[in-house]
Nucleic acid binder design. Structure first.
Length: 572
DNA sequence: GCCGTTTTCGGCCCGACTGTTTTCAGTCG
């Protein structure tokens, strides 16, 4: 898959052209192409072979030629041409908040500045204030910007941001008179990571609401505190913005601040073509205000069906809404069980009984206990002998417990040679077999892919867990050819897991969408090792929704009987 | 560079803030 490489090249061309002062429309064209390639569910090489490059939105004659050139020769002459004499460090100057292409070009040309250190030195020596359009104040802001860039907290997982924002909103409701409080931005779209958090609220006394927000416990730093907007750094170094908006434009503000940017731009283009205009204040025809109090207004006035926030990435959802074909997405309430939980038998902290009772309390019909297999010593892998005892225990519990069914499972390791870490005779006795890679992450693509293919070919394997192995905070995905894995999974009718653990979220949204298009079944599992991690199922549902997945595709929306029949048929 | 229920040429999203200006350019979300 060269999709990612091409996306990065076009992004870079966009950056360099912007720096060079090229037409902003051309810059945007490259950036759009970069984004579309990033989100593409199909392999760009396949599309190229079949002569369909031009059918990709945002890919016209010029970009199609460049893609073809790169795929055929491994090089792109346009890229090589624009980056001549331009260093990465120079381009990086544009990432300083408050510093854009014009400023970089100016200091580069007039002062010969090449990197952040050079810029900082020039500012300290007071050499910037003599340049046209720059002054002492701007110098000060650049220093602040450099500091901000260096301290900038990385993006954090949605699984970390969500509990944080809920605490903040609860506190706000207690401490101030707010009518509505709702998160917006990437958090509302449930993107897998968020860079900052936006919260929207309505209420009569804006100043007091902002005051309550900025003086709340847990606030590390107050960046702004006005009548309509407050901005803080919360624990963990993440920035949180609160905006108070008038009731009559609450819907349009929510729509506007939810984004994504690309989605909003596309909507405004449609509005414009129909003689209307959208802003955070409402939707207008000339002076006449057509709506804005409710978010749904914006979509319905444009003749679109409502688009759930998780889909708003300009990945085709607007076209779907024009045709009334927005998919029915899976909902958390439709899940009947969690298919990946660890108990004390391996490295979990709860007993099977405690897990089962908690699952029942959560309204589940079933819960799958999937402990690690024998050779994973560091994770307390269960030996073959212990597995027999564990199965007895599950049988006993199932006879005693009412209203919840414990499924006996395992997360069996796919060893470095592609064999599984339990004999087939044992796997056959289990209700559910999840297979996963936990070792040999550095192997080359063919080898890793072949390991997973071998697992997929084993008739006892029902699900492949965390198919790419990435950890959001710390580890890249291993080299796996996901195209081959998906085709094989479709062929063997094996499910792929959406691992809902906050640091994994693996498959991700684009992976889910590819799976769905190929008819590959999915399962959602929290990979919980504690009872208080079972809530993360929400995150898995969010990934599925962002991947356009409906309930039918997901094993654990099925009633117990149907799931058991499917599992039995497979292993036979 | 892309794209077309006005267009194959001439458009290309919207508003706010900041700082340096005296009417506006640059940057941001």
């Amino acid at each position: 898959m060269k999709n990612r490489e091409l996306s990065e090249i076009f992004e870079k061309i966009g950056d360099i052209l912007e720096f060079k002062g090229d037409s902003s429309f051309r810059v945007n064209a490259y950036r759009k192409a970069a984004r579309v390639l990033q989100d593409l569910t199909e392999d760009i090489e396949v599309i190229q072979r079949e002569g369909r490059l031009r059918s990709i939105p945002g890919v016209g004659e010029g970009i199609a030629k460049k893609i073809a050139e790169y795929l055929e020769t491994g090089r792109m002459s346009k890229y090589e041409e624009v980056r001549r004499g331009i260093s990465d460090e120079l381009i990086k100057l544009m990432s300083i908040p408050g510093v854009g292409p014009k400023t970089v070009a100016l200091v580069h040309e007039k002062l010969g500045i090449e990197n952040i250190e050079g810029l900082e030195r020039a500012v300290r020596e007071g050499r910037l204030r003599d340049l046209p359009g720059l002054g002492a104040k701007k110098e000060e802001n650049i220093l602040k910007g450099i500091k901000l860039l260096q301290e900038a907290g990385k993006r954090i997982s949605i699984g970390v941001a969500l509990p944080l924002v809920e605490r903040i909103m609860d506190g706000l409701k207690r401490r101030a008179k707010v009518k509505q409080v709702y998160p917006a931005g990437s958090l509302r779209r449930m993107k897998e990571t968020v860079g900052d958090i936006d919260i929207l609220t309505t209420g009569a006394e804006g100043g007091k609401i902002i005051e309550a927000f900025t003086s709340a416990p847990g606030v590390k730093e107050v960046l702004a505190c006005g009548e309509t907007k407050g901005s803080i750094i919360a624990e963990g170094g993440i920035q949180v913005d609160l905006r108070v908006v008038p009731q009559e434009s609450y819907g349009s503000a929510l729509q506007y601040f939810t984004g994504s940017k690309a989605h909003n731009i596309h909507l405004r283009e449609i509005a414009k073509s129909r003689g209307m205009k959208i802003s955070e204040y409402g939707i207008f025809r000339g002076e006449e205000r057509l709506g804005g109090e409710r978010e749904e207004d914006i979509y319905s006035i444009l003749g679109l069906s409502y688009i759930p926030p998780e889909l708003r990435e300009d990945r085709g959802e607007i076209e779907a809404a024009q045709e009334g074909k927005v998919p029915q997405l899976v909902e958390e309430s439709q899940l009947r069980g969690d298919l990946h939980v660890h108990s004390q038998w391996s490295d979990g902290t709860a007993t099977i009984e405690e897990i089962a009772l908690k699952a029942k309390e959560m309204g589940y019909e079933y819960i799958a206990i999937c402990d690690h297999s024998q050779s994973l010593k560091f994770a307390g892998g269960v030996s073959v002998e212990d597995m027999a005892k564990k199965l007895d225990q599950i049988d006993r519990l199932n006879r005693g417990l009412k209203g919840i069914r414990i499924l006996s499972g395992t997360e069996v390791d796919i060893r470095t040679d592609g064999t599984l870490d339990y004999p087939d005779e044992l796997l056959e006795r289990l209700d559910l077999v999840i297979a996963a890679i936990h070792t040999g992450f550095k192997q080359p693509e063919e080898q890793i892919t072949q390991r997973i293919i071998s697992a997929l070919e084993n008739p006892h394997v029902d699900i492949i867990a965390h198919p790419t192995g990435r950890l959001i905070s710390s580890r890249e995905a291993y080299n796996v050819n996901m195209g081959e894995v998906l085709s094989k999974a479709a062929e063997t009718q094996t499910a792929l897991e959406i691992n809902a653990y906050y640091d994994r979220l693996d498959l991700n949204d684009v992976g889910c969408r590819r799976a769905m298009e190929l008819g590959v079944k999915l399962s959602i599992g929290t990979d919980a090792h504690h009872l208080d991690q079972l809530w993360m199922v929400r995150l898995g549902v969010a990934v599925a929704r962002r991947g356009w997945v409906g309930p039918e595709q997901i094993l654990n929306t099925w009633p117990l009987e149907r799931l058991l029949v499917w599992l039995k048929k497979r292993s036979g």
